[in-house]
Design a protein around this nucleic acid. Sequence first.
RNA 1: GCCUUGGUGGCGGAAUUGGUAGACGCGCUGGAUUCAAAAUCCAGUUCCCUCGGGAGUGUGGGUUCGAUUCCCACCCAAGGUACCA
Length: 936
Amino acid sequence: MEYNFNEIEAKWQKYWAEKQTFKADNNSEKPKYYVLDMFPYPSGAGLHVGHPLGYIASDIYARYKRHKGFNVLHPQGYDSFGLPAEQYAIQTGQHPAITTETNIATYRKQLDKIGFSFDWTREVRTSNPEYYKWTQWIFTQLFNAWYNKESDKAETIDTLVATFEKDGNANVKAVCDEDITTFTAEEWNAFSNKEKEAILAKYRLTYLSETEVNWCPALGTVLANDEIVNGVSERGGHPVVRKKMMQWSMRITAYAQRLLDGLGTIDWPQPLKDSQTNWIGRSQGASVKFQVENSEDMIEVFTTRPDTIFGVTFMTLAPEHELVSKIVTEDRKEAVEAYIEATAKRSERERQADVKTISGEFTGAYAIHPFTGEKIQIWIGDYVLASYGTGAVMAVPCGDQRDWDFANHFGIEIKNIFDGIDISEAAYAEKDAKITNSDFLDGLNVKKATKQVIYHLEQKGIGEGKINYRLRDAVFSRQRYWGEPFPVYYKDGMPQMIASEHLPVRLPEVEKYLPTEDGKPPLGNATVWAWDTVNNEVVENSKIDDETIFPLELNTMPGWAGSSWYFNRYMDANNENEFVSKEAVDYWKEVDLYIGGSEHATGHLLYARFWQKFLFDLGLLPVDEFAKKLINQGMILGTSAIVYRLSGTNTFVSKNLVKDQKVEELRVDVKLINTSDELDVEKIREWQPQYKNAEFILEDGKYIVGREVEKMSKRWFNVVNPDDICEEYGADSLRLFEMFLGPLEQSKPWNTAGISGVHSFLKKLWRLFHNNNEFTVSDAAPTKEELKVLHQTIKKVDEDIENFSFNTSVSTFMIAVNELQKLKCNKREILEGLVILISPYAPHIAEELWSKLGHKESVSTADFPIFEPSHLVESSKEYPVSFNGKMRFKLELPLDMSKDEIEKVVMAHEKTQAQLQGREPKKVIIVPGKIINIVG
RNA sequence: GCCUUGGUGGCGGAAUUGGUAGACGCGCUGGAUUCAAAAUCCAGUUCCCUCGGGAGUGUGGGUUCGAUUCCCACCCAAGGUACCA
């Protein structure tokens, strides 16, 4: 009976599916544990061996936790809205839903082959109306909420309205738009509905606003920053303009501080926390208002160094700053306008890339220094960003290098306010100098001066201490087809939410997936796309009458909408009445272990935390962080194969024959290479026509290829398909090998050659149970030595899994099997333990052996074996060192010994040593967990 | 530039709170079995040499009886981020 992995794996995969072995129950006496993978976007290319790495790790942990007596939730689903399916639709006309369906089927087939313990009864797809109904519902909740700074949480909008009706808005502390004017209760009550709505919009957590986007008229679409190269579109090279569009935004800035604080409470990787911290970009300082000379206008700036205010010698505004056109003097107008036009042409990316060039223009206007009353020049310069702070800075050339460079370049005064510091060559940005030349700040250090200045600013009513965040509100509209439609229609130009009982608003059918000719989003192509407020439904072929039938929102939601809450949906995936029931979410609470890529650090993982906090504020969720622990799995890289073509010929030389010859390096399919880097010269001739008649110059009768480690990608021909590996070596080998490659978090190259090691390990394991191809185990009692092997393995594997060092436990299995093989051990007790230990890693072979051992139930429900340290008594190691009259040695002792027992053993050891060395035994001092000291 | 992570044989990578560096696997070398191959098993495999040793965990210092591990400085690589006032 050979180890027939294909047969075994198919058999147990079918068994698991039929018995629903991994279906999680929402009611259980057992403690809960929720293990989650970042759900995939089902792309047309299918999975390569890099994708399942994290899934294998989480599956091992999920299976392990089941052995340890936990009720484990381990679901999977698909983030199935997205651009590729839409682009395919634009090219071929095939509906994205069909493309998505096909791709999901492929994914499912591939995933099933690897033997994951997913509970598929809870599968979610973000593009299913039953799912996006609740994404739309959450959107309406955000619309009907505002952020109360007083209670520091989101509240429903009616609490705000009630306050307005009673007291106006003078005492309301909210995170809202900046241009709010104060009104009394009487004024509020006198406003028209439309006026009220306009005001409320400034408070809502999702709101419409004019936002600048990169608009490409030729492609008829909005482009992301990285889709633009040198001011033209990456695809096609069409011109791109900055254009303002009405877009939905999410007021994520309301949560900036809590998103920052929350990081302290979750066990996530430091680099990921750091990048979220940077992204939020909290900086503490002050806002200061500068009066413009001969004008009512004030220029507000944000500074982190208010203490340097006496060093201000000019101000710089972003070219886009709204005051520029107002304050510019007649004689400077031409130059300033030319400069503004020149900057507008450059993309934000270009402006940022070009840090070296110093440019700017004097506006001709002056501001008044708030303390000295001096006139200071107002300049514009593109080193000031309109999107950060107030879009204006008070320039302190002695303390800021950019200001220094600017002043130096344009010959503006550089005033030194640092005591004993030379600023003739560069600005001094350190915070350890005493302030001088600064009136009431003279002689103070930075900290005290800052406090003083803020006090004076507040006294004068022209500034205050302020915390500024880099984080900006998130644009939530996309001019795409394949996304969630908004549950919004427009009445009198004001957005109206569609009530939850009428959701979902389903995606309409369209003829074309491109934007309309008049520049509307693709949904504008729908003939059926208006809302009937009488029957509460999308109406067909009806005219908008602005009485009962209103136009629907034509944008769709971005990719991160559906993925910002899916982890909660898994808890109660088939609930038709709620996004998740209270009972379910109170039971599962949050994800205990989340595994996925670090590329989502400032996207998905930030937005998901935001929505979680929001839903928590409304009392809909019991915890405000959705994932306790998170692990970023590394990327599996491909190992490309390179052939060398002599320049200008069709002759290919083997790697070591290249020497100094001029060659072109071409990548060839890794499937054509054997384990010794040798190219199959016959097969490559059929692979691509250009090799058909090529000449290959061999070394030692072989053509040896070069190797390069790089990202797995079709274009490098280095993609390895897991299906092929499963076919040739089995899923268990694939699982073990992916873990064996190296630490989970690390990026590492794939090399199919190495899989033979884990594969032959599985064959050895199989042979432990088989004698002359007959299944044979002995019921005799195991020897101490055999028990030792098992227990060492239990201890190590248990530790490894808890530490997520799955790679080292594979080595531990190999050592165990080698030792048992040498001991010719086929004792039932030992082998049973081993099977359970291995089952999270190689579940199929474990199930097969388990059932052959006579068990009726699946091994997945078996208890993890318990480590008994008493079996390890004999293992002791010592490291003797003697110095300075002290004797030190380390003894490895069994874990179940008491201090007294240890002392006995150590004294015995010391006696022997003393006897050997012909001296008196010394006193023994036990320091638990440390090297044992024997003091003379 | 800044932040983060890392740097160990031909390769992937082990090494507990500082305690025999290189576990385990790949590859390679030799051997057994075989008509032969596959498969399997056994032995060897950090480097250098004069076969007795010597050097060795990116580089240079330091702490220590003892450092891959801790401290300082530097070099290199990967990821994130950037005129952030």
